[in-house]
Design a binder for these strands. Structure first.
Lengths: 345, 345
DNA sequence: CTGTTAGCGCATTCAT
DNA sequence: ATGAATGCGCTAACAG
């Protein structure tokens, strides 16, 4: 590994000149610049990140906090990560992956005390997320995917829940559905501070009101069985329902089973729209699922972009954004069947 | 941020003594050790990773290479990562995540030239993987999950394909199956150097021979449609088949559909064993899938452990390991139906 | 057992 | 437009 001193010697200049040609923060004559560059090339020089970081107090490392031991991770998490990593790289940063639980503030403190990390990206943010509190107090720049409710003016990217609900219901309404069931997460999940469930609930109710649709909300455990049973009950008690909107990916598989068990078919009798689902899941389902989801790669990129901007310019303005969902119509939605109480049980 | 000098001053010792109490590589009197520790506590000192890395030439950072733009990533990838990250942390390392394509050797070179990374973990390893070649030439310690065929004595952890095939077939054999179909990846996948497909093929053939089972192999594109059609064809041409073993997760969903289309049921008419599938997928399938897979967290942990050992002791011996599959019987396998040509089409 | 000192490779201030 | 010199915070000889 060649060092800056090697380059300087070879180019016949001082070390600082080499440094400045690299950073460009002070004028360098064309002649010298060329000599330095040539020397770098010949020596296959590349700056040492540790030394640079130590001297400049800028490590160029961003930590991605992605708690992995939680509730079953889903595939869009990977998209977020991939997008954030790509964006980081383009901006000249490296991305550290930190996977301990949301509650592990000691670990987080240890990480940030090392002086290795310039900024942090938070994923799987919860209502009142302790990490947000810690990072704010510690004065460490961060940006989050999702909201905790206490970020203040810190940057974040979150789902536009209202838009997502509206798009889903508008799609159903446009093809004739009038009564829709909303399969949400379980109450215990909501209570654990998984804010998504609550926000989605409100958004659905608002959108249904605006579109004058009948909305039946069902809280459901994230299991096959729960979903299946939920539908059977639903179809008995609310036979007028012709469409289902779900944020509960796990339960949804069961719902489809419940529909089949009830002697009904998707989308002939019941249409389904999945919210915030990964493309993977939507496309490998049978039938494939119509979805409304904000593109995960956009969320990942934006969150990283905001953080980098904070790091480099100190600006925090306009760095809070709600990403609208994107409706992708697949096989699970179709025109509403005429409301004539088709066989159930 | 307190520095070592601060601690030294407060404890009334020299800087090096502080350093040595931390590393423990030279004897320190109990008295001094206590004073130093107290000073550290009071100042809330924690060593600067960059400075330490620069001075010691050991950054404490390991890069995890996990190409993300490839063929649809699966969920066990996340398990590998999570396990590796946990292991890294326990060993005192941080884990950098690098997500560019396998072919992006320039990017990899850039990363490793920075002097930021001490060692590398490779995932999604391909036959003749260019990354292995590069890292070997560059003399950068690495460990891989999967094999490229050119690691030499470099550490790796891979699936025990023979064991996996044997366990899957032995299970089927024990419940009366005599003719089994093997749904592999597509030929093009095999040709792209995705060695898993080839190794699994050989292992299945060997195991079938040993158990005196009839084996029909089918190469299949990773799509719903392909899987579905493949089964329909299969059941027409080989009606004696009562069980299916698959490594092709994507196609498998289709296979189940094909079975249904043929008027058959799982596991009453056809049993299914999924190989190398994630627990997630297995449990959310309908019916849930009997699987044989090596525990991904074990593979992740081991790969990381091997790398850390190389880094710290230079020992490479005995660091190549094949992890046996683990049979988990779920709903998709049952006793073979008596061979009596039940209705097809 | 402890202290002194010389770097690690680079950024940056102060000269010129 | 360029050079010289200092220091970032720590490790690891070397000296005692």
């Amino acid at each position: 590994m060649a060092t800056m001193a090697d380059v300087a010697r070879k180019a016949g200049v001082s070390r600082s000149t080499v440094s400045y040609t690299l950073s460009g923060i002070r004028p360098i004559s064309d002649d010298v610049r060329e000599r330095v560059r040539a020397a770098m090339r010949e020596l296959d020089y590349s700056p040492n990140a540790l030394a640079r970081g130590l001297a400049s107090k800028r490590s160029g490392i961003i930590a991605m906090l992605y708690p992995l031991l939680e509730r079953g991770v889903n595939l869009s998490g990977l998209d977020h990560i991939g997008a954030a990593a790509a964006q980081a790289r383009e901006a000249g940063y490296n991305m550290l992956l930190w996977t301990t639980a949301v509650e592990d503030i000691d670990g987080l403190e240890e990480l940030t005390q090392q002086g290795l990390v310039e900024g942090v990206i938070l994923m799987e943010v919860r209502q009142n997320d302790p990490r947000v509190r810690f990072l704010t107090d510690a004065g460490i720049p961060f940006s989050s995917i999702g909201r905790s409710g206490l970020e203040g003016d810190a940057p974040y990217v979150d789902t536009d829940f209202d838009g997502t609900a509206r798009d889903a219901l508008a799609h159903l309404e446009s093809i004739g559905h009038r009564a829709v069931a909303f399969i949400n997460h379980s109450r215990s999940t909501i209570e654990k501070g998984y804010g998504l469930a609550l926000k989605m609930q409100l958004a659905m109710e608002t959108a249904a009101l605006a579109l004058e649709l009948d909305l039946v909300s069902v809280a459901c455990d994230p299991q096959f069985r729960a979903g299946s049973d939920a539908f059977v009950t639903l179809s008995r008690e609310r036979p007028e329902v012709t469409a289902i909107v779900s944020v509960n990916e796990k339960a949804l598989v069961g719902v489809v089973d419940g529909i089949t068990r009830s002697g009904l078919a998707v989308p002939d009798d019941i249409s389904i729209v999945a919210l915030l689902s990964s493309v993977e899941t939507a496309e490998t389902s049978v039938p494939s699922l119509t979805t409304v989801s904000p593109p995960p790669h956009e969320m990942g990129r934006e969150a990283m972009r905001y953080l980098v901007e904070c790091l480099e310019s100190g600006t925090r303005a306009g760095h809070q954004r709600l990403v609208p969902g994107q409706l992708v119509v697949r096989e699970s939605t179709g025109a509403a069947r005429r409301h004539e109480h088709t066989a159930t049980r």
